[in-house]
Design a protein around this nucleic acid. Structure first.
Length: 301
DNA sequence: TAGTCGTGGCA
DNA sequence: TTGCCAAGACT
């Protein structure tokens, strides 16, 4: 009788190799430094959502000086926070971070929680950010899955050209299987995996010649096939509500006090879309209307 | 699950 | 020039 053995092939991602590479090539970003607080890590993770490192750096440094603790940020007004967010984009993140800071100050003794489940309960913190904070601020073992990690795993492990549509549960299970057992090493591994996707295993033209995983990469062995999954929908921007909201908010960021509606009307020609966007900004709490009918950043009137 | 939510650099 | 892309969360 034949004996069929299921042999798990070794992972194409050797933790030692990846972690060593990270130690040599990884960037010295300030939120990775040993003196960076958990609060600093949390702020960086929120700012980095869908936003390039180069744009985050100066704003993060400014925030750490101005608001070095959750309670410090909680003491600021919403308007100050939205203004200091500048043009990082997706300004609702600033309001959610302000809310999260208040909750941390009030309910957690001004200490950023280390438990994933508790982090998940805070506004603006989802599956990625909760685990990123647990791993990078507290050295916990947790599957940290962002777009970089999804792409690296798709290629190195699955031999695909790129990651398919995201599925949080499946994606996290994939990464969980790769994580070293020990907490601090798992956290280091997670940072290294992200860095590899950011610097080498990039979306457009991956630098495979510089990749520490080159010899074991499933995508290499498969002959680097093109991405075969469903087409990803590209997000339009020009002419969308997002653009108009951005233009409206930018008027208030660039002004001291409340402004009359006429100052906002000039940024977009189509009145219907303009008013709809203004309404949505009011609903989101990014803008407030004064009793005189003027418009201002929240709290700045 | 799919749509929405900013902004700017780069190929 | 235009489209792609960048450490996601929320509904």
């Amino acid at each position: 009788m034949d004996v069929i053995m299921v042999v798990h092939s070794p992972s194409p991602i050797d933790p030692d190799v990846l972690i060593d590479w990270f130690g040599t090539v990884g960037r010295d970003l300030p939120w990775r430094g040993p003196d960076c607080t958990a609060w600093g890590v949390l702020v960086s993770e929120i700012m980095l959502q869908q936003t390039p490192v180069a744009r985050v750096l100066p704003i993060w440094l400014e925030w750490m000086t101005r608001w070095p603790t959750p309670s410090a940020l909680a003491g600021a007004t919403q308007g100050e926070v939205v203004r200091a967010w500048g043009k990082l984009g997706y300004p609702r993140r600033a309001l959610r971070l302000h809310e999260a800071a208040s909750a941390i100050a009030r309910e957690h003794g001004d200490v950023v929680p280390a438990e994933v489940d508790i982090l998940l309960a805070l506004p603006g913190i989802g599956a990625y950010t909760a685990r990123a904070v647990a791993a990078f601020a507290y050295g916990r073992r947790a599957p940290v899955v962002d777009t970089n990690v999804r792409r690296v795993v798709a290629r190195a492990v699955h031999g695909a050209g790129d990651a398919g549509p995201p599925s949080t549960k499946r994606d996290m299970a994939d990464v969980e299987a790769l994580l070293p057992d020990e907490d601090a090493r798992a956290a280091r591994f997670s940072a290294a995996l992200m860095e590899l996707g950011a610097l080498v295993c990039t979306a457009r033209s991956p630098r495979c010649a510089d990749c520490p995983l080159h010899a074991d990469c499933a995508w290499q062995h498969a002959g680097r096939p093109a991405y075969a999954g469903p087409a990803k929908q590209v997000q339009r921007f020009a002419g969308t509500d997002r653009q108009v909201r951005g233009l409206l908010l930018d008027v208030l960021r660039g002004t001291e006090g409340p402004v009359p509606k006429g100052k906002l009307d000039i940024v977009w020609h189509e009145a219907g879309q303009r008013d709809r966007c203004l309404d949505s900004l009011l609903v989101d709490g990014l803008i407030e209307q004064t009793t005189e009918g003027l418009f201002a950043l929240p709290g700045e009137h």
